[in-house]
């Protein structure tokens, strides 16, 4: 191939233009070819078609926490006691690393039901119920303590346990998702 003439301070030639144009088209082509190869890694249509889960709450006694599966993840449904609700409400927002009042995490009039994605916001372990310094949840993996509202209080987790989208289909039936 001939040497580029611009090196000698002359005007760009037709050949320079062709080099750059070919290179640019080649780069776009390579990116277009790589796209499907990378995109296939993302959650596919069958995984995305998230089914919602319905749960009957009648057998869940006060003070009990049940675990159900939603989108492959555990979801906790806690039937909180009066004391637990009061503790959650009494907590000052300034004591929280991720400030959020208890009201924002439960449905009005249904304060006894706490519904949480049971995945520690640190690195994804499943916390244990009724444990830890705040008697809410405790993650054994690296020691994160959550309170009776599922809010992070102590340990490496950066944020509160997530509240999934859910609604009460009837008084005793909850639909998650």
């Amino acid at each position: 191939m001939a040497k580029s003439t611009t090196m000698n301070g002359e005007q760009p030639t037709r050949r320079d233009f062709l080099y750059i144009a070919t290179g640019a088209v080649g780069a776009v082509g390579a990116a277009a070819a790589a796209w499907p190869l990378i995109s296939q890694m993302n959650p596919d249509a069958s995984v995305q078609a998230l089914a919602s889960t319905e749960v009957d709450l009648t057998p869940v006694a006060e003070g009990q926490i049940i675990t159900v599966k939603w989108r492959g993840k555990p979801v906790f449904i806690a039937h909180r006691t009066k004391k637990e609700i009061e503790e959650a409400k009494a907590t000052q927002l300034r004591d929280l690393p991720d400030p959020q009042p208890d009201e924002a995490r439960v449905k009005k009039g249904k304060e006894q039901w706490l519904v949480l994605v049971g995945v520690c916001t640190h690195l994804g372990c499943v916390p244990l119920g009724h444990q830890g310094d705040y008697k809410g949840f405790f993650c054994p993996c690296h020691g994160s303590h959550y309170d009776t509202s599922g809010r992070i209080r102590k340990g490496p987790a950066p944020s509160n346990l997530e509240v999934p989208p859910y609604e009460f289909a009837t008084d005793t039936m909850v639909r998650i998702g």
Binding site: M41, N42, P43, D44, V47, R71, G72, K73
Partner: peptide
């Protein structure tokens, strides 16, 4: 989610 191919470690994760 990209690494998992889903919303948790599951079949797509194991297979890849």
């Amino acid at each position: 989610e990209f690494l998992w191919g889903g919303y948790s470690v599951d079949q797509p994760t194991l297979q890849r």
